[in-house]
Simulated scan of single mutants.
Amino acid sequence: MTIRIGIAGISGRMGIYLAEEAAAAASLSGGTSRSGHGPEGAPHFSDITALARESDVVIDFTHASTVREHAAALAATETPWVLGTTGYGEAEQKAIEDAAKTIPIIASPNFCTGVNLLLLLAEKLGHALPPHQYDAEILEMHHRQKVDAPSGTALAIGRAVAQGRGVKLEDVIVSGRDGHTGPRKDGEIGFATLRGGQIIGSHSLLFTAGDEQISLTHHAFDRRVFASGAVRAALWLHAQPAGLYAMRDFLRL
């Protein structure tokens, strides 16, 4: 059976790549867009519910403001959901978790295999390196159009380190130092954010001690790496029972 993949936000920069990858790997059912049209030959639907009814799985890289609406619509139509949107809050997270009681959802800030391997290593290093000896810092840079900071991937790296250390990121995060901040506290996880040009995505995790430094860095050179990962995840998700999954589940990490 050919799986029909729908793309929310099909006319956007990521939406176009997703549509191309979906058409190559499965069947593109069409998409939604604010502009009212998508790539040539791709059916356009008026809203997420109409798209879901004609799709076996929907891939969604739209905006945090759409998460609750899309969660309700996809749960109502029992359509599996690949969610790559970032920058949402607790209310949106609850909507995702509620929808996952009815449908399978894979939610990830990054669908690149390399980044997800970095997350695994980040957790292991966080566990192995004592926080009073090794200071953890995360540096990320993206294109000038990106609206959320730190990036969802940077936050995911921070959460992985925090999980390895047995703490919550919210209790130890320090983002955007400015002015007279005083000395660095043991156990902090620091974030630095850069924006400029058309950088697709660059993330570095550094553990720095008095006598050594360990660094992990990932650079994305082409947005298609995220699209191809999301489509592969969609093909896998279609066969899964209801629940909330991560890329770690798909990659069997």
Rank of each mutant, 00 (worst) to 15 (best):
E54D: 14
R252L: 08
A24H: 11
S215C: 10
I214C: 03
E20K: 13
H63R: 14
S46I: 12
T113W: 06
A220K: 03
L117I: 14
H127P: 00
L129T: 06
G87Y: 04
Y88Q: 05
A25H: 13
H203V: 04
T66R: 12
V58Y: 10
L119I: 02
S202G: 01
L83G: 02
G182V: 08
D222A: 11
G196I: 10
L120I: 02
N110V: 02
A128F: 03
T32K: 01
D249G: 06
F207G: 02
Q133R: 15
G176N: 13
A233H: 03
E90P: 08
H127F: 12
I96L: 13
M14I: 13
G164V: 11
S202L: 13
F207L: 15
H37A: 12
V172I: 10
L205N: 03
T49Y: 01
G41A: 12
H44I: 13
K168Q: 14
L169W: 10
T2Q: 13
I48R: 07
Q198M: 10
A73P: 03
V231M: 05
K185W: 04
W236A: 02
A26C: 06
A8F: 07
L237A: 02
R34Q: 13
G152L: 08
H37P: 00
L194Q: 11
A22L: 06
D56H: 13
H143N: 14
M247P: 02
A76C: 10
S29N: 12
S27I: 01
F45L: 09
A239F: 03
A71S: 15
A23F: 01
M247T: 08
E20I: 08
D171R: 05
G166Q: 04
Y134L: 08
L51F: 11
C112L: 06
A76M: 09
H63V: 11
G41D: 03
E20Y: 01
A72V: 14
H143T: 07
G30D: 04
F226L: 13
Q198K: 14
T2D: 12
A136K: 04
Y17R: 14
T32W: 08
T85S: 09
I59Y: 11
A233D: 05
A99K: 09
G126M: 08
L155V: 14
G243V: 09
E123H: 03
R68P: 00
K101Y: 00
S175W: 04
A64S: 15
Y245Q: 07
G12V: 04
A246W: 02
G229T: 04
E140H: 14
A76S: 15
E123I: 03
P104K: 10
I59L: 15
N110D: 14
D178N: 12
T62D: 11
H70F: 14
A128Y: 05
V115S: 01
L118Y: 03
L205Q: 01
D186G: 07
A95S: 13
A239S: 15
E40D: 15
Y88E: 01
T217V: 12
M14G: 02
A64V: 10
E90A: 15
D222F: 05
H63E: 14
A192K: 06
V172D: 01
G187D: 07
L117G: 02
E69G: 12
V172F: 02
V147N: 08
A71G: 09
R232Y: 00
R248G: 15
V161N: 03
I105A: 08
H238S: 10
G158N: 08
L206N: 06
P43V: 07
G38Q: 09
D60V: 09
Y134S: 11
V225K: 01
A209D: 13
A234G: 03
Q93I: 00
